[in-house]
């Protein structure tokens, strides 16, 4: 069973095909990188996977559950840290996490325990009584990660998790992601920092204009002494032609 299986996914907006007949699999426990230029269809694929966007054609399963027919089981298996800060900026972060835990059916005591654990792990303890808008960029990203991890999902989807954070915080984030991966979590990462993808991911796929143009292991990407960035640029250049 795959952690994520996308079969012939097409996502059509009014006059634009954002994802075009995309098929992709992510194995359980894999650290998977999803690359592509802005507007390539990465976020749309993630949105279709998590139920934020409707699927035009095709199907997606998460941990064996169809995201449409068995949406509750599928969503229970996924934690999403989106690119945008889609958070109630006026609510205390402790309260916001408590609501999210509740959405996933976690009982009160378990929520409290998990919030304490995550705040400690991600260094958010001193901000628990603060509203999201009062946090700095780096701590906002940490909160987003805490929210994605709140219900301890099997699959973690991180859409640009290190956007807007400084070098030290990025390194700390990588360390934490490695720990999560070591604990057996499947992690799907999209990022414009190719160095980040190269350092963390086992396998990388590239999307261009909604189509899959590459799906290789990191070793295949970096063969012949090329960096991941060089191979990526070559692939997207060829796709444009």
């Amino acid at each position: 069973m795959y952690a994520l299986e996308i079969k012939n996914l097409t996502k059509q907006y009014k006059d634009k095909t954002a994802v075009d007949n995309l098929s992709l699999t992510v194995k359980r426990g894999e650290f998977f990188g999803l690359l592509g230029q802005n507007g390539a269809g990465k976020s749309t694929t993630i949105h279709c996977t998590t139920g934020v966007a409707k699927i035009t054609e095709g199907n997606i399963t998460v941990m064996g559950h169809d995201v449409q027919a068995e949406y509750q089981q599928a969503r229970d298996a996924v934690g999403l840290s989106p690119q945008d800060f889609n958070v109630d900026i006026f609510a205390k972060i402790e309260h916001s996490l408590d609501y999210v835990g509740g959405y996933f059916g976690m009982p009160k005591e378990k929520r409290k325990e998990r919030i304490n654990e995550l705040f400690k792990l991600l260094g958010l303890e001193e901000f628990r009584g603060k509203a999201f808008q009062e946090l700095s960029g780096g701590y906002k990203r940490r909160y987003m990660l805490a929210r994605a991890l709140m219900h301890n999902p099997d699959v973690l989807i991180l859409d640009e998790p290190s956007a807007g954070i400084d070098v030290e915080q990025r390194l700390a984030l990588w360390e934490y992601l490695r720990t999560l991966h070591g604990q057996g979590k499947t992690i799907i990462l999209t990022s414009h920092y190719l160095e980040e993808v190269e350092k963390l991911c086992d396998r990388v796929a590239v999307i261009h204009k909604g189509k899959l143009i590459a799906d290789m292991t990191k070793a295949e990407f970096t063969q012949n002494g090329n960096t991941l960035e060089e191979t990526y640029l070559k692939l997207t250049k060829e796709a444009k032609v």
Binding site: V52, P82, V87, D88, I89, V100, F104, R147
Partner: peptide, 18 residues
């Protein structure tokens, strides 16, 4: 409206809430 406008609604849409 606030939840749609701030996209906070996606917190609920991506959860198992019916």
């Amino acid at each position: 409206f606030f939840h749609r406008w701030t996209k906070t609604i996606t917190e609920m849409l991506a959860s198992p809430l019916s």
